[in-house]
Amino acid sequence: MIVMKPHGHYYRISKMDALLFTLSMEVVLLQLRILEGCSELRAQQWKPLGGHERQKREKLLRDRSSVKETVRQTLISVAERGDWQVLRESIEILKRRATSVVTKRINKQQLKMTLMTIIEELKMKSCQFSVELRDADQIIATLRDQRSDEYLNASTRLCYTEKWLQARAESLELECNIKREPLPRTDHEQRVHDELLKAYSLQIAEREKSLEYWHSRYAVDTATINRRLKEKADQFRCVSARRAELQKLYDLHEGEMRAWLTFKKERAARLLREKRLRDSATRIQAWWRGVMVRRALGAFRHLRNAKKLPTKGKKK
């Protein structure tokens, strides 16, 4: 146990404790030497299979050497200073080394996870790039087909245009070679003009008659619609007035209906409460009457002197 003075200094180790601690440290050093010797003998016959096992062995040797050095320094400091603070410092050194080892392991695991994540991302990117490359090949093939189709369409259009121009030229040549017919006579044109005037005048008369008919029809329909609108407006006013009267009547009787419903609920609750009271009183009276009969109280005192009937015995 470590005991401190009032000023924060530690007591010195007693001779017996120092001797026991020295023996313990020497035993630890001896065990470490034995382990190192055994390790050297095994290392002569041991063949590492890879770099990972070699790294493990080197780390084990470093840890052993650091522990050995810490124990030796602790032993020397205890022999020189002879207080408990030396042990405390050695324990703190070992704790820091253990913490650093745990931190390194955690960092190693994190680095492994990061490496696995990066590898997965690279795989996904490679798959995505391969798919995009395949799609690009398909797009290139499609564009090549479109280019060939456009070339064929353009050549077809050019051939069609050349043929059309040749046919048009031939038709113009034929038109120039055909003789024109003579102009029509004047009396024939006058007759055609008169027939057209008659047809136009008949159509104008029909349009005027239909216009008059629709004017009269519009006036009649407008009057009918106005009459119906007035009737609907009168009906709407009557219905609105009736609805207002009914709303007033409903508002007038709403309080009475609420009072009647409240009265019904209170009456039902009162009747139920009275029924429960009657049932409770009946049960209490019946129980008390039974008690009076069994114990011969009050009006049933004469039952004390009455002979009890023999009870039936059990059948053997």
Rank of each mutant, 00 (worst) to 15 (best):
M4T: 14
K5D: 03
P6Y: 05
H7R: 13
R12D: 14
R12W: 14
I13M: 09
S14A: 09
K15D: 03
L23W: 09
L23D: 12
M25R: 03
V27R: 15
V28T: 10
Q31E: 09
L32I: 05
C38P: 01
L41A: 02
L41C: 07
Q44H: 10
W46E: 01
W46G: 03
K47V: 02
G51F: 12
G51Q: 10
H52K: 13
H52W: 09
Q55D: 02
K56Y: 12
E58S: 09
E58T: 10
K59T: 12
L60G: 06
L60H: 07
R62F: 11
R62A: 09
D63W: 00
R64E: 01
K68H: 03
E69W: 08
T70R: 08
R72S: 05
T74K: 01
R81W: 04
W84G: 10
Q85P: 01
R88I: 13
E89Q: 02
S90G: 10
K95Q: 03
R96V: 01
R97L: 05
A98L: 07
S100A: 03
K104D: 04
I106G: 00
I106V: 01
Q109I: 12
K112C: 02
K112W: 02
T117Y: 14
I119A: 07
I119W: 06
E120G: 14
E121W: 00
E121I: 12
L122C: 14
K123P: 00
K123T: 02
M124S: 11
C127H: 15
Q128L: 14
Q128H: 15
Q128E: 15
F129I: 12
S130K: 15
L133H: 09
D135G: 06
D135S: 00
A136R: 01
Q138Y: 12
A141M: 13
A141P: 05
R144G: 10
R144H: 10
Y151A: 11
L152T: 15
L152C: 15
T156H: 12
L158R: 14
C159S: 15
E162Y: 11
A169Q: 05
L172N: 10
E173F: 07
N177A: 13
P184V: 08
R185H: 01
T186M: 05
D187T: 07
H188G: 14
Q190C: 09
R191C: 12
E195N: 09
L202W: 13
Q203F: 11
E206R: 10
R207F: 02
R207Q: 08
K209V: 06
L211C: 08
Y218K: 08
A219Y: 14
V220P: 08
V220H: 15
V220C: 07
V220Y: 13
D221A: 10
R228N: 00
D234R: 08
Q235P: 08
F236C: 10
V239S: 15
A244Q: 01
D251G: 04
E254W: 01
E256Q: 12
A259T: 04
L261C: 03
F263T: 04
F263S: 13
K264A: 06
E266A: 04
L272H: 03
R276C: 11
A281L: 03
A281I: 02
T282K: 15
R283K: 06
Q285S: 07
W287C: 13
W288K: 13
G290N: 02
V291F: 05
A296G: 06
A296V: 03
L297S: 06
A299Y: 00
A299G: 09
L303M: 15
N305A: 15
A306E: 14
K307G: 10
K308R: 05
P310Q: 11
K312C: 12
G313Y: 09
K316E: 07
